[in-house]
Design a binder for these strands. Structure first.
Length: 222
DNA sequence: AAGTGATCATAG
DNA sequence: CTATGATCACTT
């Protein structure tokens, strides 16, 4: 029995706050879900579990989790100090038909307009079921954060447009980086080649780097 | 230990 | 394959 989608921001935040301090095993039990021994083969398990508990719309549509509220849900694994353990995936990167695409039109821009961060204990020595949910945080980028994101996005997209996608590494970008996003390194998708024609490359995705998300969480709890 | 590149499951 | 949800695991 799926949970109904929250009808207001207030209701969503109320539900999110009610999860704080609760273990994943408890939340899984409530939803009739089994807890995996580890996340090696269940990498998206925590995210799916929280989506279910909060009543997010299921599916893999390229839309916000709470479309009617314009809010994107992101769980983020943290250590005991509250520091993120992993980078945060944002979206796949368009590698073709990007002529004239602006930052304001980009999927990254829209996805990060309003994000509900749900920190989850993520250290590997803690059994998955015993990991607890932290205090939720509704975030929208500040002017400064937005400027950093825009700058990185524009630099990365310019390289893609110039046919240099295969030369871009995760080192590019201060807060936003481009990394492989595929089943494996042999997966191919169309991209722009050095000569301007269509070629094949490993699909890429945009990720938020750890120091950036760490600041977001830190600012909220200071 | 941090950071980058690779990978896993599932829905459509 | 694309897009959703991310974490794994090797290199530095």
């Amino acid at each position: 029995m799926p949970k109904p989608s929250p009808q207001s921001l207030t209701e969503l935040m109320q539900r999110a706050h009610d999860m704080a301090g609760v273990s994943l095993a408890d939340i899984a039990f409530e939803n009739g879900i089994n807890v995996p021994q580890d996340l090696k083969r269940d990498k998206g398990w925590v995210g799916q579990l929280i989506e279910m508990e909060l009543g997010a719309i299921a599916g893999s549509r390229p839309e916000p989790d709470f479309i009617h509220l314009g809010i994107e849900l992101k769980t983020i694994p943290i250590d005991q100090k509250g520091k993120p353990l992993e980078t945060t995936y944002v979206t796949v990167a368009p590698l073709t038909d990007i002529h004239g695409l602006t930052w304001e039109q980009s999927v990254v821009f829209h996805k990060l307009q309003s994000v509900l961060w749900v920190p989850i204990e993520g250290e590997r020595h803690i059994p998955v079921g015993q990991r607890r949910v932290g205090t939720p945080l509704l975030w929208s980028p500040s002017t400064a954060e937005m400027a950093l994101l825009k700058q990185d996005w524009e630099e990365i997209m310019e390289k893609i447009a110039l046919g240099k996608v295969d030369n871009i590494t995760a080192r590019h970008g201060e807060v936003l980086q481009l990394r492989p996003k595929a089943a494996n390194s042999h997966t191919l998708t169309e991209s722009i080649g050095p000569d301007g024609t269509i070629q094949l490359s490993n699909p890429r995705g945009f990720y938020l780097k750890i120091p950036f998300t760490q600041q977001i969480l830190r600012n909220a709890f200071l």
